[in-house]
Design a protein around this nucleic acid. Structure first.
Lengths: 224, 224
DNA sequence: TTGAGTACTTTCCACTGAAAAGATAACCTC
DNA sequence: GAGGTTATCTTTTCAGTGGAAAGTACTCAA
């Protein structure tokens, strides 16, 4: 970290990597994910358009890093809602879903980036790690209700898949403007809707005894 | 429609609009939604890169038209699954969801295009019409179970929102490779999973009596 | 002080979507 | 048919993109 010299901008930025992440997010929010421009990002950060290449291999790598920040913030938002909710397992579970949707509504372009098909977070361990951490918030919420042993069976992962599908689908449809009946609501007024959805996804009793007798598969579980 | 002259290609294509739609879909499938190239599409169709401008205002308009085809095919796929399923309301409902997921798996790039945030189908009546038609397949399936009167209340739209969110979220997560535990399954083996999800979204009895007493709002209902 | 390496800029290239203007063929009226 | 009109398609051009390559400015260690 280098202090800026008094006159003019210094040749060395000092912390360009962090500045680029910030600039890239601003660019993302303003231009949208498919009009995102690396040059525009560089201009925002006040450097030449080729400077980012020193910190990120290419534009995709930069966006991957932005997505990693997004997953980290998604986890924070979910945990934040949980902190505000009551201590019961059920309330904590619902709060995780509420946080998910809140994040989506507050960061629609980010969600698009994070879950777009073009992202291949297999080859970006940092991204995968942050995504995994966000995922675990939801998994834990389900686990506290069902009991952690459920993750030894496929059925437990079905519960997770249902909850995740529900909340993710809802979030995506809301931010793409396809959920007209909640569009006019303040977020707090949506809480009831989200709670309804979450309870449907993880019903108290139904479908518990279905016997699929599939081999427990840790490697094949759903994950971010 | 004009027959191609015997030698060389004729100056006038004959049905360039249709050819461009086909070429654009091939380009979409091959390059992906964010590497899609108008010039590449024109080359596929065997015309100059400026020719498409006569049939589609710009690249976005072309992709909107492709998305409209996609919605039409989505509706076909859902109805196709329903035709194969038993006649019961419940089976028909599940089949709609199965068709939705099948379409997504068979046309992942298309789904990305159709539901991406950048699509603004408000100003594209044709796209909106096809999307609406696909939507109605799902709505009707719910309506047959719940009774058509439910759409006079917000509760009915909640049922639709739940089913749609569930199936859409699942489809998106599957095609973006985030549902590991089904990735190795043949599609037919996924049917049980999808049926499970659909039944969770529209439980037989639960949550029916919740009294939200919201004003019936036809204009605010969820829609494609 | 100097040599080496890192951070950044400048220049360049191939590609993109779009606009403008020119070329060709089909249509329409007579 | 013949002529004019119009729609379709091509060529040219331009601004903008990401990335490669080469040059410049700075830092730091010996």
């Amino acid at each position: 970290m280098v202090a800026a010299s008094k006159e003019g901008k210094p040749y060395h930025h000092g912390d360009l990597r962090a500045a680029l992440l910030t600039a890239a997010e601003a660019e993302l929010i303003e231009k949208g994910v498919d009009s995102f421009s690396l040059r525009g990002t560089a201009k925002r950060a006040g450097v030449s358009h080729a400077a980012p290449a020193h910190h990120f291999r290419d534009a995709t790598a930069l966006l991957d890093a932005v997505a990693a920040v997004g997953f980290s913030r998604l986890a924070d938002t979910m945990r934040g809602e949980q902190a505000l909710a009551g201590p019961g397992k059920s309330e904590q579970f619902v709060a995780a879903g509420v946080g998910y949707v809140r994040f989506a509504i507050d960061n629609p372009e980010m969600l698009e980036l994070m879950f777009g098909r073009s992202r291949t977070d297999g080859d970006h361990p940092d991204l995968a790690r942050h995504a995994e951490a966000a995922f675990s918030v939801l998994v834990n919420a389900v686990g506290h209700i069902r009991g952690r042993h459920v993750f030894k069976s496929e059925e437990g992962w079905r519960d997770v898949a249902a909850c995740w599908s529900m909340v993710h689908g809802y979030a995506q449809l809301v931010i793409s403007g396809r959920m007209g009946f909640v569009a006019t609501l303040e977020f707090d007024e949506q809480r009831g809707v989200i709670e309804d959805l979450m309870r449907r996804a993880l019903p108290d009793s139904a479908f518990r005894m279905r016997d699929d007798s599939a081999v427990p598969t840790q490697s094949g579980r759903p994950s971010f």
